[in-house]
Design a protein around this nucleic acid. Sequence first.
DNA 1: AATCAACAGTAACAAAGGTTACAGATATCT
DNA 2: AGATATCTGTAACCTTTGTTACTGTTGATT
Lengths: 211, 211
Amino acid sequence: MIQELKDNYDHLFEDDLLNEIAQVGTFKEIPAGFTMMSIGDYVRGMPLLISGAIKVMREDKEGDELLLYYLESGETCSMTMNCCVGQTKSEIKAVAEQDTKLIMVPVQKMEEWTAKYKTWRNFVFESYHTRLNEVLHILDSVAFEKMDQRLLNYLKEKIRINKTNTIHNTHQEIAYDLHSSRVVISRLLKKLEQMGRIELHRNHIKIINLA
Amino acid sequence: MIQELKDNYDHLFEDDLLNEIAQVGTFKEIPAGFTMMSIGDYVRGMPLLISGAIKVMREDKEGDELLLYYLESGETCSMTMNCCVGQTKSEIKAVAEQDTKLIMVPVQKMEEWTAKYKTWRNFVFESYHTRLNEVLHILDSVAFEKMDQRLLNYLKEKIRINKTNTIHNTHQEIAYDLHSSRVVISRLLKKLEQMGRIELHRNHIKIINLA
DNA sequence: AATCAACAGTAACAAAGGTTACAGATATCT
DNA sequence: AGATATCTGTAACCTTTGTTACTGTTGATT
């Protein structure tokens, strides 16, 4: 584990901290599609991503969903820290987008390290910074843009995260992520196909050009 | 200044920190309606609110606005910290909602105190925590709720912040905050009046019952 | 190969919200 | 009081998005 930790966090943390993480952290492998956390769950650990990606979503009482952002290697979840500070339940849902490797750190350590290590402090602040900006951009998207543009952004982000030009999702799944309906998404996807920007197939979409 | 500081931050900060703040901070009084910060401005200081309230908004390229939240006494702006960390320009616009008193602290001190004072660290984390949650709630509102419900939430928050049952705004101003149009807001307000929940007047709205 | 469930395409319609246009009401100022 | 600018009410209409319903297609399963 210490090796995988170094590969991803060496430039961020000093040796002492890396060693502490290796001591108290637990290594986990999570298969794509696995739900790691749901609304209302208590937060027991803070994830440090080694590889893969995690999809973070917001959900309302009726179970309507909205994709917030993806976590990638070298990142952590501010929402988790968020919950630690307030001792509250999770406000988000997290699902593995790909097969993912990560290290789980007990929440108690977070505050301890914040006092002890400058690099950890910076990491935590940087993380809050990034997440806050990401949530703001989603807000911009939802508040100021129409569904066709939101769909474009979604497809772009999806191929960036998964490093592929083929998106393996049904229209219904995309509709959930964007909090829209299947028919609306099919309609807009068909338009994109007619523009020659994507190719539609059953269960997958080939991206031609989204620029 | 030290007295006003103590009145609002005594329970949060230890004496040493209060004294440091008093030394390097500058006291400011800001009249209601004054624009304190616009998108693209560089961030020079971090505000600690003494009294009054500040309205924090998001704005897109076309100048469309959306109210994010209000800052009240005892609070600071995470967006400001956000910008300090990244050395970036402001992503938000801030306007005094009421006559406001605050202390401006140079951004350099922020990181210094984070290492030095546990109470400051907690304050900063707590602040990030609160703001992130507030932005998430706005996102919920925009993504999951219809305009009539959003308008209700808006009116409730407005009377809570301003501690009054009369809202001194035009329909156009409300429309800006909710990123809607004047006609739509007038329409919905009229419905609320017909339900007996508010009374409409020129330039102000009397709240009867929003529960 | 036949069957079946899930997925995608499409039309027709409904609802919410945005736009335009104009009339009338109300504060403010002189 | 009269003039003016601003604000509000309302109607008619448009666009976007969501809903319902049905058909056809595809992939998987037996």
